[in-house]
Structures are given as structure tokens and as C-alpha cells.
Write a protein that binds this DNA or RNA. Structure first.
Length: 934
DNA sequence: GCCCTCACG
DNA sequence: GACGTACGTGAGGGCT
């Protein structure tokens, strides 16, 4: 028994290679500033190690720990089977030099760093976990690698570091269908395409688990293979018995790896501040260095002399110190801040308000920051006095010792509108609208959220808390600590000013620091043009659209709601009658049990939660021969229309304006599209007749008309251009029906007198191509056999070979660069594109789609940005955007002028940046309501 | 808070 | 019958 490691000891085994690849693919390529050395994976690796080291781990805290790496690709398994891992691609060029650095990093963290020639990390992990168990201790393997799951059980478990999920015998059983002790048997049968373990052809995990459960173990199964009922399966096992046995030796981990160290030597040690900071500084990881110095300085005063103050990474970045923020309560101090702003030429600004709805909330204070650590809060709307309940509640009155709103805004207005002073904000559209409602139109603007979006779309979200943590290593004060949550939530106006200042001023401070962080990166990463031409100018344009809102006829909606309620009640009665019992039609779970359980209908598909799917396409199939599912479909449609639209929309009418004001997220969608929220006005029904009537409730003011202009087939046109497909381009130039043309090319039929069914199929394929088509997807969409769908796709690629070339190139770009770009330079990161397994398919399709969807989004953004100037002299306002459609409200007499002006802007929106080789065509309509205009 | 379902381009 | 699959969104209701 190894001395010192025994009962009560707990060993953590970190799968180093998994950490590296995860880090590499999760992060954009990053290089060391001074010499261009690629260090992205090292940075991610260090962040993960730091996160791991700082974690408390609770009761599972390790007494011993090690990071284990693969040493080289050739191991004893290649002697058993020379093709083992033969189809593993070489690691990317920019990852290779980072491997030794991750070893250095591990040592810098003072964690044992282990690799042994000729052995895979998995075998070392197996050996160490066996030893830990035998010594009477326990072990946790930090990895999500399924190959390690065979080790689970009896004192050994796994922790998925990404999901933070503990993997025990139950989870293993869920994955493999057998307990950990039989995992190798299942793997031997199923094989593994990633590691090139052959297994038995045609047998996957499901079948393998079933066989093992039936026969007990692999040896018994192979010995009694002749008894298997299914002839094909029996023959496979008999024919491939040797191959299966070899596979088992490949997947079975070796617990007897010779080790030249003891468990005791893996004892957990605190990192040495100097060593660790030295390494991080050398790598030039500013953020992490600061973060580590912070922590080690605070917790280990003995070593503060070295790191915290001398951390060279950020000499000019003061620590966050909420005590240093100033509360501005008099006009002299405010004037001093204004003078400081005029001095620096820029200011970070954040408004505090009474709520989240920027069309209803009132401002209660403004924060400013002029330099990191130099920030203030100017309260003017805080109240005091118990809001309380009952008769004796005092009406809240303004808290003392505040400037008035008028004083503050009058003093700031000249600065906020001064064209020589840059206003920096995080999600500035919000603050812009709050101030615009007080008569201040801020300009010019810098928005850190949009900078992050231009740099990092696809990698992570762009909220302030996320950015602060990621790029400044700083955790923001959660707003909940001030205003609470749920029923007892108060507004920011009720927060005592002395509590408000640290929170509020911190937001401005963080914003300023983020701006300093992002601004120099923009030209280096070549995203300045996108930010300047497609992101930043959207803020005032969208703010004006949102403030304009659209008139909604509440009476019309109310009448529809009533009619829907009646119809639903009637359908419910019929459904209960047909089911023979009452149940909640709106519960998919109950419905599934009725249809597939009680009534025993065929075709019940169970998802991963074990519930039957009752989605529309399932019900449609059932509806062919049963009444009940048909009624449910009707009920569902009406229920959706009522709850999501006719009911909910009435609640979104703003009492002050009598109109509905949506909010557009500029940085929400990965591709550059906008997203509309609260309410979502980008998914108002149109496809069904019933639904289209909801659009009649969106109306023009008296004397006005609604005008809708939309791009015709914009994504297909972009595809024709970027993939350079002569046949498609010519068809668009000639203005012929594109789907009919496709059908004609594919099925060799004339366009004249074409069967509508044929055209419909061609249309589905055209759309499918944009989405990264698969035979499965097309077959489901068209409800045709999969082989037939695959034939269509093959024919399509034969007729239009350029499309295949485009797809391949796009995926190749994504794999090499970690991102794809649109025609206008928008960058969409593609994390996960280099993964293997089913997840890779999705990433592939997303990468193919992104440049097309993204370019369309860029084009309409360009049009929207130019629109205000183009329609300035017309009595018209732009109200809504629905991806390829713009909706305006215009005086009746100016409808034609508006259509002409807006169409010209939209059709020419790509120019002069891009001269498309196909024309952009815009269709237009006008009417009293949206249904008529569209 | 997650899942299912469904509205749109 | 190894797996799961068209791309991008937001919202409401059920259920735990």
C-alpha cells in the first residue's frame, strides 16, 4: 500500500488532451501580441485549469490531482491493429506548437503533469484510478470521454467538465445500455469510427447492448452466436468474431501501465504565485494574469509583495474598487465631470431606470466613466418612504440631496449631443431611447455589445456580465442584490442611493474598460468595416422604429379572441367525446398517452424524455385515418393564434402611445439577422387563412396607409452570386420563375404547363440547399422515401455542380479559420466545426447557411441605415423589419412616392460595396392594414 | 427552468 | 436500424 495515499484520500485525474482540444475549438484563434505565437488553446486551457483550481469542489475536494496527456500517437494498440486511430486527422497546424506549452502551464499551476511514451492518457488514468481504489481511496476522472466510462464504479466516478455533471454507473448505463463492467463488450461490438475500432459491421450501441444483456457477456455471446435468431446478425457475429475480439483489446484500458512515481507524489499543492504569474505574463494573458494576481494576492498575503502590485500585465488598469465611485449630488461636482469629459473626448454612460421596458421606464440616475476606475453616479429620481401597503402607506417622495432630473439632463445634453464627444455604452439602444424620450438624441456612439458581436458572433453572447467576466475577469454585482426578484421586487428608484452608486457606477466603469479592450482589436481582426457600417449605425435607426411603434386594433383582436375561445370549447368537447374521457388537450403528454396508449394508434415515436411525440407532422399522418388527431390539429392552431397573438398582443399596447412597440436585438442572432422581442413582430401569422386575419389588426392611422416592401428570393439570389452558378444567375437575370427553372433542369420537363407538384419539389430542394441539405431532411419535408429524396439531391448537384463546390469550400474555410464571412465581411464564428460525431453535422450546415442568411441580413441592414435620409422629405416612417421585408406608415397621398424611394434604396443596398451578378428585386404593396399591404 | 410545440423568414 | 439531421429566431403552456 502506497504510503500516504489511503482511506479518505480522493484523487482527481484530469484528461489533459480533452481540455486542449476543447479549448482550441471553443476559442477564436488568438496569437501572442509580441511575436504572433498561436496561444488560443493555451489560453483556454489555462482558463479551464484556473476555473478548476478556484472551484471549491465541496465534499469531493481532491487531496491528490494530476493532469494526464497523450505522449505520442503510436502506442501498443498499433501493434494489435495497425489501423487503430489511422483515420485521425493531424492536429491543426496552429495547435501543434501549443502542446508543449500546455504541459508548461500545468506545471506552472503546480499540478502533477504526466505522460508516458507508448501509452495513451486513458491507460494512465485507468492505472491510477485502479491504484487509488486498491489503496482504499477514491478517484474522479475529469473528462467526458466515453472510452473512460468503463472505469466508473466502486469509488471511481467521472465529472463532465463542460456540463458540470457527475457521471456514475447510472449515467453510464444510460449511455451504453449496460453497466460499466460490460461497457468494453458493447464498444467491442459497436466499434468506433473516430478511433477506427472496427467492431461488428452493422451493429451499433443499441443492438450491442441488447445482445450483451441477452447473453451476459461478450465471450458467451460469441460462443453461442449460432443461437441468434436474426440470420443477418448471427452471420455477422460468426464471420467477424476475431475482429470483435481484437476490437475488445483495443477499447479495453490497461490498468497495468508501468509508473515511475507514487500516488503520494500527486498530492495537491498550492500554486506558487511567482511561477504561475511568470508563466501567464510570458504568454501575455492580461486578463487571466490580473485575475490570478487578484485572487492570490487577496488570499495569500504572504506573497502579495510579488504578484498583485507587480503584475506587469496591466500596470495602467486599476483594480475594481466600488468604494472609489463618486455620488454626484450638486451642480459644481457635475460640472467638474462634464469638464473632465470634454477633456478626454469620450465618456462611458449608463442610465438607471424604473424598469426594463425602455418605452415605459423613467430614468432615475445616470452613471459616467471617463477612465478605468474613474466613475460616478448622478441620482435624480430616487424615492424614499415606505411604499408599504394598507391605509397608512406614505406616498413615496423624492429622496433628499439629489439634483433634479431637469438640472442633470440640461447640464448633460450639450455633451451627449456634442459631435466631438464619443458616448460609449453597452447596449446603447436602450439608453438612447430612454434619453430620446427626454429630448436628447445622443451622438456619436460606441457600443461594446456590438463590438463584441462584430468580433465574436457565434462564440458567446454579448451581455455585459458575460463580457466583463470573460474579458476583464470581473464579476459584476447582480442587480438582484439591489432590487430583489419575483413578487417582492422593487424598482431602481427605491434603492437607497448609497447602495445604488457602487452598482451603477460599476456598469459605466466596466463599459469603459470593455471599450478600451475591444477598440484596438477591431482593425487587427478586420471587423471595423462591419462594425462601422452594419452595427453602429443601426442603433438610432432601430430606436426610431421602435419608438414609432405600430397601431393595433385591440377591438379586432378581442373579437377574434372570443370567437377562438368558442371554437376551442367546441373542439374540446368533440375531442373528449372521441377520446372517451376528459383530458387537457394542451398537454402533449396526456395527448400522447390517449393516442398511443389508450387508443393504441400506430406510429408513436418516443423522444429522449420517453414522451410520445405529438408534433404536427405526427398528427397529420394519424389524421388520415382518425378524427381525433385532426381535431387536435385544429384546436392547436386556434389555441396558438389565441394565446400567442390575439390575447397577448392586446397586452402589449402601450397606454401612452396606443401602439405596440417591439424591441429588436441587434446582437441576438448569430448570422446578423435582427430578432424581435416583447412582442415578437417577426412571426405574425401569414401562412394560414385564419392566421392572416390577425394581420388585419395591424392598421394605419387615419389618413395613412401601411406599405410593405420585401425582397424577392434574396437568399437564392445571394447563393447564385456567391456560389457563381451560371444557370441560376441567368434565370434571375431573365426574371423567370426560379423554382420552375430548377424543376425543368432537374426533371427535364418544360417550364410551360409544369405540374405544380414538380415545382413544389424543386422549391423544397432550393430551400434545402440553403440550409445544408440532407436526404433525410428533404424526405421528411416532402414526405417521400429517403432514397428518392437522395436521388433528387444527387441530380441537383449534377445539374448545378457549383453548389457542391461552394459548400465544400465554405466548410473548409470554417475548419481552417474557425469562422465564415459574408460578402460584406461579417464574421460568424463556427465553434464545433472540427468536432466529430453528430454535432459536427449541425455545425457544418450552420456554416453553409451562415454566409447566405448573413449576407441577406447585411443587405437589409444597409437599406435600413440609408432609409431615413431617403424618405426624409416624405410624410412617412419606417416601422418594422421582418428579415426580408420593411413595413412603413405613410400618408395616403405619398404612397407611390414612398414605394419608389424605398424600393430604390432596397434594390441598390448591396452597392457600392458589392456589385451583385444578379438583380435584387423588391415587391411592394399598400393598404389599410398589414394583411392588405403584404 | 426545461421541454414541447408552433408562429415567422 | 450505430447516432441524428435542413438554417435562423421568440413565445406560450405544461410539468417538475
Amino acid at each position: 500500500m502506497s504510503e500516504g495515499f489511503g482511506k479518505g484520500c480522493h484523487l482527481h485525474l484530469i484528461d489533459g488532451s480533452a481540455f486542449i482540444f476543447r479549448a482550441y475549438h471553443a476559442l477564436p484563434p488568438l496569437t501572442r501580441k509580441s511575436d504572433g505565437l498561436p496561444v488560443g488553446a493555451v489560453a483556454g486551457f489555462c482558463n479551464m485549469l484556473w476555473k478548476y483550481v478556484s472551484d471549491e469542489h465541496g465534499s469531493a475536494a481532491p487531496t491528490h490531482a494530476a493532469v494526464i496527456f497523450d505522449h505520442s500517437s503510436k502506442t501498443f494498440r498499433n501493434e494489435i491493429y495497425d489501423l487503430y486511430k489511422a483515420n485521425r486527422p493531424e492536429p491543426p497546424e496552429d495547435l501543434r506548437p501549443q502542446f508543449p506549452l500546455t504541459r508548461d502551464a500545468t506545471r506552472a499551476f503546480n499540478i502533477a503533469c504526466i505522460e508516458i511514451e507508448g501509452y495513451e492518457a486513458d491507460d494512465i488514468i485507468a492505472t491510477l484510478s485502479c491504484q487509488a481504489r486498491e489503496a482504499g481511496g477514491s478517484a474522479t476522472i475529469i473528462s467526458s470521454d466515453k472510452d473512460l466510462m468503463q472505469l466508473v464504479g466502486d469509488g471511481v466516478d467521472m465529472l463532465d467538465p463542460i456540463k458540470g455533471k457527475l457521471i456514475g454507473p447510472e449515467e453510464v448505463r444510460e449511455k451504453f445500455g449496460v453497466g460499466p463492467d460490460r461497457v468494453v463488450d458493447v464498444q467491442a461490438l459497436a466499434g468506433d469510427s473516430v478511433d477506427n475500432v472496427p467492431g461488428a459491421p452493422g451493429i451499433g450501441i443499441k443492438t450491442a447492448a441488447q445482445l450483451i444483456n441477452d447473453y451476459g457477456d461478450l465471450d458467451t455471446l460469441l460462443a453461442r452466436a449460432a443461437e441468434i435468431k436474426q440470420p443477418k446478425r448471427r452471420q455477422t457475429l460468426i464471420d467477424h468474431a476475431d475482429q470483435i475480439r481484437i476490437s475488445k483489446r483495443l477499447v479495453e484500458l490497461d490498468c497495468k501501465t508501468p509508473l515511475d512515481f507514487t500516488l503520494q507524489s500527486l498530492e495537491v499543492r498550492d500554486p506558487d504565485a511567482e511561477t504561475l504569474l511568470g508563466f501567464l505574463t510570458e504568454m501575455e494573458f492580461r486578463t487571466l494574469t490580473t485575475r490570478v494576481a487578484d485572487r492570490l494576492g487577496a488570499e495569500a498575503p504572504a506573497v502579495t509583495a510579488a504578484p498583485a502590485s507587480e503584475a506587469p500585465a496591466a500596470p495602467d488598469q486599476p483594480q475594481f474598487d466600488s468604494a472609489s465611485y463618486q455620488t454626484v449630488r450638486d451642480i459644481e461636482t457635475l460640472d467638474q465631470w462634464i469638464a473632465a469629459i470634454r477633456e478626454t473626448g469620450h465618456v462611458a454612460i449608463d442610465t438607471e431606470t424604473t424598469g426594463l421596458d425602455d418605452m415605459r421606464a423613467d430614468p432615475v440616475g445616470i452613471c459616467l466613466a471617463t477612465a478605468p476606475g474613474t466613475a460616478c453616479y448622478i441620482p435624480f429620481g430616487h424615492v424614499e418612504g415606505e411604499a408599504g401597503d394598507g391605509l397608512f402607506a406614505t406616498a413615496p417622495s423624492l429622496a433628499p440631496d439629489q439634483l433634479t432630473q431637469d438640472q442633470v439632463l440640461s447640464a448633460l445634453k450639450p455633451v451627449l449631443e456634442d459631435p466631438s464627444i464619443l458616448k460609449i455604452g453597452q447596449n446603447l439602444k436602450y439608453d438612447w431611447k430612454i434619453l430620446a424620450r427626454q429630448g436628447i438624441r445622443m451622438a456619436p456612439l460606441a457600443d461594446t455589445m456590438l463590438m463584441s458581436y462584430a468580433l465574436n458572433a457565434g462564440t458567446h453572447n454579448h451581455g455585459m456580465d458575460e463580457l466583463a467576466e470573460r474579458y476583464l475577469g470581473h464579476k459584476c454585482i447582480p442587480i438582484k442584490e439591489l432590487i430583489g426578484s419575483g413578487k417582492s421586487q422593487i424598482t431602481f428608484a427605491q434603492v437607497p442611493i448609497d447602495k445604488a452608486t457602487p452598482y451603477a457606477a460599476e456598469d459605466a466603469d466596466v463599459t469603459l474598460r470593455l471599450w478600451q479592450h475591444f477598440a484596438p482589436m477591431m482593425p487587427v481582426e478586420k471587423v471595423s468595416t462591419v462594425y462601422e457600417t452594419l452595427e453602429r449605425p443601426m442603433v438610432p435607426v432601430l430606436a426610431d422604429m421602435e419608438m414609432a411603434g405600430i397601431r393595433v386594433d385591440g377591438g379586432h383582436l378581442g373579437r377574434m379572441s372570443n370567437a377562438f375561445a368558442q371554437k376551442m370549447a367546441q373542439l374540446e368537447d368533440e375531442i373528449h367525446e372521441l377520446a372517451g374521457e376528459k383530458f387537457n388537450v394542451g398537454s402533449p403528454k396526456q395527448l400522447g398517452e390517449i393516442l398511443f396508449g389508450k387508443l393504441g394508434m400506430e406510429g408513436g415515436k418516443q423522444g429522449k424524455t420517453g414522451a410520445y411525440s405529438t408534433s404536427a407532422d405526427v398528427l397529420e399522418d394519424l389524421a388520415v385515418s382518425h378524427d381525433l388527431p385532426a381535431r387536435v390539429l385544429d384546436w392547436r392552431q386556434i389555441s396558438k393564434l389565441k394565446s400567442t397573438y390575439t390575447d397577448a398582443l392586446q397586452g402589449h399596447v402601450n397606454p401612452d402611445t396606443g401602439r405596440v412597440h417591439t424591441s429588436y436585438s441587434i446582437a441576438g442572432a448569430q448570422t446578423g439577422r435582427l430578432a424581435s422581442t416583447e412582442p415578437n413582430l417577426q412571426n405574425i401569422p401569414v401562412r394560414s387563412e385564419e392566421g392572416r386575419r390577425i394581420r388585419e389588426a395591424f392598421v394605419a392611422t387615419e389618413g395613412y396607409r401601411l406599405v410593405s416592401l420585401d425582397y424577392s428570393q434574396i437568399e437564392l439570389r445571394i447563393l447564385a452570386h456567391v456560389a457563381d452558378i451560371p444557370a441560376l444567375k441567368q434565370a434571375f437575370r431573365d426574371g423567370i420563375d426560379i423554382h420552375a427553372m430548377t424543376a425543368s433542369q432537374m426533371f427535364n420537363v418544360p417550364v410551360e404547363g409544369m405540374d405544380p407538384m414538380i415545382r413544389r419539389q424543386a422549391k423544397a430542394i432550393n430551400f434545402g440547399v440553403i440550409y445544408g441539405i440532407s436526404g433525410f431532411g428533404l424526405s421528411r419535408n416532402l414526405r417521400i422515401p429517403r432514397a428518392e429524396a437522395q436521388d433528387f439531391i444527387n441530380t441537383y448537384f449534377e445539374r448545378f455542380p457549383e453548389i457542391r463546390a461552394y459548400m465544400d469550400k465554405t466548410v473548409e474555410d470554417a475548419k481552417r479559420d474557425g469562422f465564415v464571412t459574408t460578402l460584406f465581411g461579417r464574421r460568424i464564428n463556427t465553434p464545433g466545426i472540427n468536432q466529430s460525431g453528430p454535432a459536427a453535422g449541425g455545425a457544418r450546415r450552420a456554416a453553409i447557411n451562415a454566409p447566405i442568411q448573413g449576407a441577406a441580413a447585411d443587405i437589409i441592414r444597409r437599406a435600413m441605415i440609408r432609409m431615413p435620409a431617403a424618405i426624409r422629405d416624405l410624410p412617412a416612417r419606417m416601422l418594422l423589419q421582418v428579415h426580408d421585408e420593411l413595413v412603413f406608415e405613410v400618408e395616403e397621398s405619398a404612397v407611390d412616392d414612398l414605394i419608389a424611394a424605398a424600393r430604390q434604396v432596397m434594390e441598390g443596398a448591396a452597392e457600392p460595396a458589392i456589385k451583385l451578378s444578379v438583380p435584387l428585386i423588391v415587391d411592394a404593396g399598400a393598404g389599410m392594414n398589414w394583411a392588405e399591404a403584404h
